[in-house]
Design a binder for these strands. Structure first.
Length: 437
RNA sequence: CGGGGCGUAGCGCAGUCUGGUAGCGCGUCUGCCUUGGGCGCAGAAGGUCGUCGGUUCAAAUCCGGCCGCCCCGACCA
């Protein structure tokens, strides 16, 4: 993308309404604009990040055996009357009537809808297990939306639902998602720690929240330090095998949110290995047994022809929240520092002297060569002073900056800067191509 | 939902107490200059002062209603 043509409105000053760093940087770097309290429009740069996060979530869900569907944002009130939640759910649910006076709602979650889809489509134990997910916009009319996309009213969420014949199967499904979540967040450069959590109004008996540590987190969390740097990506994972040992490895060390915090257990950890911090919830997994399948009569025929109520679980990842969460976890005084896996552009070319023929020629040639190789590259061809370009580029946080100016070019070299470390090196252009091949 | 604050140019703010020509910085546009970390000079555009009503010769300013936004708390499958 040529920056001179890109819709990228960056701001030099912090908007007054933004208090936390991720919100400020998202506005300043031109990722989003607020349109109402807790409701945001995604601009081109922000949308690229959102799509990258979505892609990683999707790849890991697919790998773990979940199948993608897409359910609507609008649901009927009758559906929710079936589970008994229409009246139980509070004013966070946005309710309205259509032109025929039918009661509708903007979905805050999809347990009811998925249960009906499952119930109507699966009749035999032989078709189990099933695990269906979708990535769809949700609306919850929060009393007090805040912190930008971290607690918006409209937000993008991956939610999925597992259906098993018995509890043992449900636990296998739960463990699959547990490991898939570890991988998902790790791939985004996050250190997400699974913590025992309250199941809340959704009910159930087995639940973990995946928390990333950040000063501005909404909840207080307590855990063993050993969990912070545990690595999942180095492991070969076979979702067909029993993943309980891996789950045990993570759950045997203490980790809990304040609702579930056990002070005595925490203090048994040697003092140097205790970690009391604040965290952001980016994922939450539940096993809730037959809480929805029972009232909604989601049953399958068992081997002996008997009717068996299926065991369910649900699993959520806050996709739009992750954009803010990743920034909270990865920024510096100059701006955002994107992990490569989610960066809107992997590399940026900074043309220091656009009115210099050889310099611009080299920039364009490199830009086209990188594009031809499928590298996501942003070319700053704007007629601005170098300082302004450097400031913008650091703000939007492209992991690599290729800086091309007349001095270096005369020596046949360009400069490569790593956004995270600030390290720079001078390289001949063809060597650069190898690096991004 | 309880408490607090704010609404004046694209962004950040002053002006409101004490009513009398709507300002500043940044950004934007034009020209010149400059070109390795938001450079400099000159000129310009841009505002129903959130909204509705009241008081007054006169309202950004005083009074009232409404709307919107932010912060703390409670809440948050």
């Amino acid at each position: 993308m040529r920056m001179s043509q890109y819709f990228l409105p960056t701001l030099k000053e912090n908007p007054a309404e933004a208090q936390i760093v991720s919100h400020r940087l998202m506005l300043r770097a031109g990722l989003v604009r607020q349109t109402s309290a807790g409701i945001y429009a995604w601009l081109p740069l922000g949308l690229r990040v959102l799509k990258n996060i979505e892609r990683i979530v999707r790849e890991e869900q697919d790998a773990a055996g979940a199948q993608e569907v897409l359910m609507p944002t609008i649901q009927s009130a009758d559906l929710w009357r079936e589970s008994g939640r229409y009246n139980a759910y509070g004013p966070e649910m946005l309710r309205f009537k259509d032109r025929h006076d039918r009661e509708m709602l903007f979905g805050p979650t999809n347990e009811e809808m998925i249960t009906v889809l499952f119930r109507d489509g699966v009749k035999s134990y032989r078709d189990l297990p099933k695990n269906l997910y979708h990535i769809q916009w949700k609306f919850r009319d929060e009393v007090r939306p805040r912190f930008g996309v971290m607690r918006g009213r409209e937000f993008l969420m991956k939610d999925n639902y597992s259906f098993d014949i018995d509890r043992a199967g449900a636990i296998r499904s739960y463990n699959n998602m547990f490991v898939a979540y570890l991988r998902t967040f790790a791939r985004m450069g996050l250190k997400a720690i699974p913590m025992r959590a309250d199941t809340g109004p959704i009910g159930g008996d087995l639940s973990h929240e995946f928390i990333i540590l950040a000063e501005t987190g909404e909840s207080a969390v307590f855990c063993h330090k050993g969990l912070v740097d545990k690595d999942i990506l180095g492991r070969a994972i076979d979702y067909a095998s029993d993943l309980q040992p891996i789950v045990n490895e993570w759950t045997s060390l203490y980790a809990a949110t304040d609702e579930k915090h056990d002070k005595d257990a925490f203090e048994k950890i040697p003092e140097g290995e205790r970690l009391a911090a604040r965290g952001i919830e980016v994922g939450h997994i539940f096993n809730f047994g037959t809480q929805y399948s029972k009232p909604m009569n989601a049953v399958v025929a068992g081997p002996g022809g008997e009717q068996i109520t299926v065991e369910m679980g649900s699993y959520g990842i806050g996709v739009s929240r992750l954009v803010g969460g990743i920034i909270e976890a990865s920024h510096d005084a100059a701006g955002i520092v994107w992990p490569e896996s989610v960066a809107p552009f992997k590399v940026a070319i900074v043309n220091l002297k656009p009115d210099d023929g050889p310099v611009s020629g080299a920039c364009v040639k490199l830009y086209e060569a990188l594009q031809a190789k499928g590298v996501e590259v942003l070319h700053d061809d704007r007629d601005l002073r170098p300082g302004a370009k450097f400031a913008d580029m650091d703000l939007i946080g492209t992991p690599w900056q290729i800086i091309i100016g007349p001095k270096g070019l005369a020596a046949g070299k360009v400069e490569l800067k790593n956004r995270r470390t600030g390290a720079r090196e001078e390289l001949p252009i063809d060597q650069l191509m190898q690096q991004f091949g």
